[in-house]
């Protein structure tokens, strides 16, 4: 699924990486525990999280996620947006809650880690 489709399905606001929305995410992950994310997320995945602090970006940086989407209308601080920009991480926000956001993406064909082959 391209990030453009993600933005459309979740009605996202794009905070960084507007010019890279043609890139593709093959697997999704909804999680607020960063250590869990670090232990199993695949490189290039879409991370949906309610965790609105710079460590969400750091976690994304270390585990090389494709993009991060903050749920439930959380607006990140300037420091967080700057950190995302500095590390080339695409940052989105949606007003949907975590479960709903994951559900809609799954319904549209984006698999989770249990089904992902690759």
């Amino acid at each position: 699924m391209t990030l453009k489709e993600v933005v459309k399905i979740l009605d996202c606001q794009v905070l960084t990486g507007e010019e890279e929305l043609d890139s593709e995410v093959k697997v999704g992950c909804g999680c607020d525990l960063m250590s869990d994310v670090l232990s199993f997320i695949k490189p290039g995945a879409l991370l949906l999280t309610g965790l609105n602090n710079p460590q969400a970006i750091r976690t994304g940086e270390m585990s090389e996620v494709g993009a991060i989407c903050l749920v439930r209308d959380k607006q990140p601080g300037d420091d967080m947006v700057a950190l995302a920009k500095e590390n080339g991480i695409i940052l989105l926000t949606t007003s949907l809650p975590l479960f709903d956001a994951c559900g809609r993406l799954y319904q549209n064909g984006l698999v989770g880690h249990s089904e992902y082959k690759g």
Binding site: L33, M34, S35, D36, S39, T49, N53, Q55
Partner: peptide, 11 residues
């Protein structure tokens, strides 16, 4: 803050 779930050392 999203940490301290006891996964650090095992990660």
């Amino acid at each position: 803050l999203g940490f301290g779930a006891g996964m650090g050392l095992s990660n």
